[in-house]
Design a protein around this nucleic acid. Structure first.
Lengths: 192, 192
DNA sequence: CCATCATTCTAGCGCCGCTAGTGTTCCTGT
DNA sequence: ACAGGAACACTAGCGGCGCTAGAATGATGG
């Protein structure tokens, strides 16, 4: 069992890294990102502040790690929806609803994924697989309605529509009551 | 001329308030909102920090004041577009392009208007007139294409689409090159 | 000319993200 | 078994943030 000591150390280190990301995520989801300070996070994981910086370059990198987790989660939820429906219209509507529901259920997670400025590669091949998978779900849902439009671009536009609905509503720019109605209109305009 | 001294004081006070808002806006537009600190702003207007708090409740209130200015500006630009075109399709496309161009030209202003969380009343009768006017421009541009959909709700959805395109692009979530294409797709989906 | 009152300033509070430097602990080679 | 050294986590502190209490300054009216 050569290397076993080093292996144990690396394993413990990896565990602690997950601990940090999980703590950041839970704290953000329960009290918002403003509550996620490096001091608070350090207290939460029962280590001192500088430990965080031995794992991540800074707070932004921690947030980026949380964002990647979120991408995997939303991708899984969208995939489940797409596999459970067959009618293309239902798929598109389901995907849209699932996306919006995710944003509603996990606002902090959604923000760090799509509104906060974190230096994650996005629209490039170097983007995290989870992110590409999530976008792929959108693409497959949109495909049946592409028509003459470029599929990628159409998908981006549909995604933007959802994102706009969500962010404007959450900032208080749109009345909450009409959310479902707006969602239906958006789906309608993209499914014909 | 009774009251003239007091009137002069009030006038000077109002001037200084405008000075604050203008300085905040120019600083934000040239160096971003992160550079707009209360200290920096105080230096810029050549007063001490606490003076800011005798005019505004806090930094958020200053940002809100800047946001209201921005609303008036974008409303004017949209009105100009709407008055210069006649074909409904051209009006909608023009309004969309003008809105996106504004966001591109004045990103800091756009952010404080529509993405930052400032406690301004929005979707209520108490919203600033300038804001209601801007939304009104959208509504009139969308009206010819309302069909069976509720006009207000449709307008909100169209606006959200634009907002999504803009914010996702600016955060690096969408490739910049395809912006015009996406804009065209959105307009197309809302004008038939 | 002085008392009064409004106004503006200096100084400081408790936070933030981040890091230099110190101590401690544990592995290694003899 | 033990000294040397590297790896590690810690304490303490930097500069900057939004904001405010209380001192100093200025103009006003008697």
């Amino acid at each position: 069992m050569a290397m076993s000591i080093q292996e144990r150390r690396e394993r413990e280190r990896a565990e602690r890294e997950r601990l940090i990301v999980t703590a950041a995520r839970e704290l953000a989801e329960s009290e918002g990102w403003d509550a996620v300070t490096t001091r608070r996070l350090a207290t939460e994981i029962e280590y001192s502040q500088p430990v965080l910086y031995s794992h991540f370059k800074g707070k932004d990198a921690i947030m980026a790690a949380v964002a990647v987790e979120g991408c995997a989660e939303i991708a899984a939820e969208m995939r489940a929806v797409r596999e459970s429906a067959t009618d293309p219209r239902q798929v598109l509507a389901g995907i849209g609803a699932a996306y919006a529901a995710f944003a509603e259920r996990r606002p902090a997670l959604y923000d760090v994924m799509f509104t906060h400025i974190v230096d994650l590669p996005f629209a490039t091949p170097e983007a995290p697989p989870a992110l590409q998978e999530a976008f792929g779900e959108f693409r497959e849902a949109v495909r049946p309605f592409a028509g003459d439009d470029n599929l990628e671009t159409l998908t981006e536009t549909f995604w933007s529509g959802l994102h706009g609905l969500i962010t404007l509503m959450r900032n208080g720019r749109l009345r909450r009551e009409d959310h479902e109605l707006r969602l239906a209109i958006l789906i309608g305009r993209f499914s014909n």
